[in-house]
Design a protein around this nucleic acid. Sequence first.
DNA 1: CTTAATCGTTGACTTTATCAAGAGTTTAAG
DNA 2: CTTAAACTCTTGATAAAGTCAACGATTAAG
Lengths: 155, 155
Amino acid sequence: MATKPGTTMNTIDRFLSSELAGEIEFLTARTRSLGSARANKLLEPLDLKVRSYSVLSLACSGLAPTQRELAEFLSLDPSQIVPLVDQLEGRGLVERTADPNDRRSKVITGTTSGEQLYTKARKATAEGEAVAMTNLSKAEQETLRDLLSRIAFRD
Amino acid sequence: MATKPGTTMNTIDRFLSSELAGEIEFLTARTRSLGSARANKLLEPLDLKVRSYSVLSLACSGLAPTQRELAEFLSLDPSQIVPLVDQLEGRGLVERTADPNDRRSKVITGTTSGEQLYTKARKATAEGEAVAMTNLSKAEQETLRDLLSRIAFRD
DNA sequence: CTTAATCGTTGACTTTATCAAGAGTTTAAG
DNA sequence: CTTAAACTCTTGATAAAGTCAACGATTAAG
C-alpha cells in the first residue's frame, strides 16, 4: 500500500507519513526555509534580507546591542556581524558608537532613516508571517509563538 | 528602564523584549540553528550530518523517493541532492536504481547497512529532540509538532 | 516524427559558515 | 603599578551551502 496505482499523488503528500516528517528538527528546518525565502522576497524592494533586517530590527529596538550581543542573539559568528553592520552603516541606516563603559565594544543604533526603513520592513515581515500562518487560528499562532520561544530561549 | 544598573543581565534576556524575539520567522530560525548544531554533534560519530541523515531517512522509509522528490521535500535544489546521494552511495548505505516507469528518474533506497545505520542515527536525533523539548510537556510537544507541520506543509 | 518538457548531472558563481590570528581594551593577579 | 589573561572587533583563509544555467538521456504532446 505504498503507492495507490492510478492515483496522482503530489510529492509532499507522498512523504507526509515518513518518520522524518514527524521530527521537530525537520519541521523547523522546512518552516524556516520556506519562511525566509518568502521574507526575502518581501524585503527585496527595501534592499534588505532577513539577516540585515534582523540586525536593523535590534539596532532600532532601543536596547543598544553590541556586535557581540547581535552575534549571540542571532546565532551568528561575530565575524559575520561585521559585513552586515558595514553594509547598513554604509547606507546610513545604523551607527557604530564606542561603548563608553567598555571601549572594546561597539554599540549599534539605528539612525532616523534606519528607523523609517525598519518601519516599512516590519510591515513586510508581518505580512510574510500572516501568509505563513493562514492555516492557524489566532490562538494557535500565539501558542506556537510561546512554544517556539521556550525552545529557542530555553535556559 | 532599558537597563537596570547594578544588575547583571545575560544577552538573551536583554533582548527577549525586542520586537524581533516575537516574530515566528526569527524564532524558527533560531530554533533550527540551535537544533541542527546539536543534531550534527550527535550524528558526528556516525559520520552523518542533518542533511545526509534526512536523505538516508527518506531512502529507508520504504517510500522509494526519486532525487527530485528528495529535493522538493527537503527544500533543496536538485543539484544539491547529487553529492549527498553520491556520498551515501559510496559508503554503501543507499542505492540508485532507475525507475522502471520513468527511466529518467532514479529511485533512492536504503541498503541493509543503510538501514542499520539509520536505526542508530534515528536514536541520536530523537535524543537531540528530547533535549530541545525538555521545557515542554508531552502534550505541548505534540501541539508544536501539529502546528509546525501545518505551516511546513500548508496547501 | 518533431517539438517541448522532465530528470539527473555538471560547472560556474555567490552567499553563508567556521576558524585562527591580530590590534586595542579591560580585568585580575601578583 | 605591572604583567598576564581575557574580551571585542576585525581581517583573512577555507569549507560548506545556495543559486542558476546548460547538457545528455528520456518521456510526453502534437
